[in-house]
Amino acid sequence: MDFDLMLRVYPFFLDAAWVTIQLSVLTALLGLTCGTLGASARLSRFALLRFLGAAYVSVFRGTPALIQLFILYFGGPQIGIQLDAFEAGVIGLGINAGAYMTETIRGAIISIDKGQREAARTLGLSQWQATYNVILPQAARLMVRPLGVNLNMLIKATALVAAISVVELTYTAQRYIGSTYKPFEMFLLAGLLYMIIIYATGRAVTWLDRKVQIT
């Protein structure tokens, strides 16, 4: 194994890892937004919204994320959507992650005992007041860990955007393989950096989960 080479290219991989982190953060934010909207739709009292929410989830969980990215990035211009690779990556992965998060958020909300809403409504709180003050604070605590799992998956999914030429970790590894012919070292380095990112987020999620639990 060529450690020398790994040390030499390491700074360039760090830059690439920074792009992966940016991608991950933006994707997570967009995913959370889509997930919140999706879950709200799925739990709406309007049948049309419930249908749209369910359709969103089954379409984006029912097709490969890579195909979704290809449709957006390569197929987009055909229907007038011009995005650069990074934008397409964030939007494609964000909407995809949102479908998974929709189910996470919805699951946490419906797992709150219905007696909680009843008690709140009985006191005179409106549907929205009950949701906001009684259901969501409890559901949010239950969401932390499963959303952490979603986050873990979406960080790894950012590797897919190498296929639409976003210069992140995986793409960078491939590029250096082209000039060094050392795929073992290059992919190992990329994998190591992914692991560090994921380990750090995992710890952060565990910390947050402990922090929000009721004593």
Partner: peptide, 20 residues
């Protein structure tokens, strides 16, 4: 109904206290 319910207290079998 929200106004009416302010005048009607209710106690449940399973308490339904807000755990948070």
């Amino acid at each position: 109904i929200n106004a009416m319910r302010q005048d009607i207290g209710m106690v449940f079998q399973h308490f339904n206290l807000f755990p948070h």
